[in-house]
């Protein structure tokens, strides 16, 4: 049986509140907070990007895995904000954790599903016996255009998972993918901000694919919601994962431990993987966890995990996700946030 050997997350310390963004655009903060179920989001510092956050998450995963990084045979980073247009993020991350040179590496992109894609491929190579360990990382520092609804949610964070066959913290019992061509969100080459199709991102996009994937994997596994201790779905805002969980028949008790969006925002490729890391921080041996990612374009990857006896033995070896989320927060005013995120064109750039 293959599964997760180690996991780790990273959350930048900076935050901006919904009120602070709404104030600039004369928007109604209470209605945004109510409608999106968001209070604040994480913001990367100017010296942070997908690579730096991936390294920190990967190092935390290694602390829990307690393996020689040279044994990692594949490393995949899923992100829609790779810092280079041409030059892999994965080479820097693999070098920083000491996994080079005998490692297969690729940067993946599928909107917010890219992180679970990396997990999926790394797991597949381990199952096939081609590598001893494989790492899948989901990380993003995504941008929403100033004044766009996305600006309230587009956040930053990363989660890393090391897959192997021995000393598991969680077995992978089942996987499943569900995908169609659905243009709900995109960014053309050379465009700085993404575009989206408004409410079309809901029913025919997010809900169709998350529901299709969740139902498909449960059917494949012969499971029902009562067989799971937890569910974590992609979190483009606070509202969608709660609603889709309820539609599937899951309770708040099953949904809320992995529900990070209200104080984290949408970390895109890092979203459901980070929620999974928060669940692994508290899950008991034997607990089953259903994870369903979502990436616009559009598709979902599903995983069924089962926590093992080793999980409580190693979870304290690295910072827990909720601790990273709730501690050491630095709140920004909009002006500093705009400077941090490169939203201001300065004289030397004109």
């Amino acid at each position: 049986m293959a599964g997760i050997v180690g996991y780790g997350a990273y959350v930048p310390r900076h935050r901006i509140t919904v009120e602070e963004i709404a104030k600039i655009w004369s928007a109604d903060a209470p209605s945004y907070k109510r409608g999106l179920q968001l209070r604040q989001k994480s913001v990367p510092a100017p010296d942070q990007d997908t690579v730096t956050m991936s390294v920190e998450a990967a190092r935390n995963a290694l602390k829990r895995a307690q393996i020689d990084p040279m044994k990692i045979g594949a490393l995949y980073i899923g992100s829609e904000s790779h810092p280079y247009a041409v030059k892999p993020s994965g080479t820097t991350v693999a070098e920083a954790i000491g996994a080079t040179p005998e490692v297969h590496c690729a940067d993946l992109e599928f909107a917010c599903k890219a992180g679970s894609e990396g997990m999926f491929v790394a797991l597949g190579l381990v199952r096939a016996g081609l590598i001893e360990y494989g790492m899948g990382i989901g990380a993003d520092t995504s941008q929403g255009a100033p004044g766009d609804a996305l600006e309230y949610s587009a956040a930053a964070g990363a989660a890393a998972f090391i897959f192997g066959k021995d000393n598991l913290v969680a077995e992978v019992e089942e996987t499943y993918s569900y995908m169609t061509d659905t243009p709900d969100f995109w960014r053309r080459e050379y465009q700085f901000y993404p575009e989206h199709a408004g409410r079309f991102t809901g029913e025919p996009a997010y809900f169709k694919h998350v529901l299709g994937c969740a139902k498909g994997i449960m059917k494949k596994a012969g499971a029902t919601p009562k067989d799971f201790a937890y569910i974590v779905c992609h979190q483009p805002n606070g509202k969608f994962p709660q609603r889709v969980g309820k539609m599937l028949g899951f309770s708040k008790k099953q949904i809320e431990p992995g529900w990070l969006a209200p104080t984290l925002g949408n970390t895109y490729s890092g979203s459901s993987p980070m929620g999974l890391s928060a669940i692994l921080d508290i899950a008991k041996p034997g607990d089953r966890i259903l994870m369903v990612s979502y990436g616009s374009g559009a598709g979902s990857d599903g995983f069924i995990f089962k926590a093992t006896d080793r999980l409580p033995e190693v979870r304290d070896l690295a910072p827990k996700t909720r601790e990273l989320l709730d501690n050491n927060q630095i709140y920004l005013e909009y002006g500093t946030y705009a400077k941090f995120r490169g939203k201001i064109r300065r004289a030397r750039e004109l």
Binding site: R13, A45, P46, D47, Q48, D49, V51, T52, V55, E56, R59, P83, Y84, T92, A96, N328, E349
Partner: peptide, 23 residues
């Protein structure tokens, strides 16, 4: 120590990563 971007070689050059300290 945290892993951070230390500097950029202009808008088209390499990104130089390395270590910085945080509290």
């Amino acid at each position: 120590i945290e892993f951070r971007k230390v500097q950029e070689e202009g808008k088209a050059g390499i990104l130089c990563y390395g270590y910085k300290c945080v509290p």
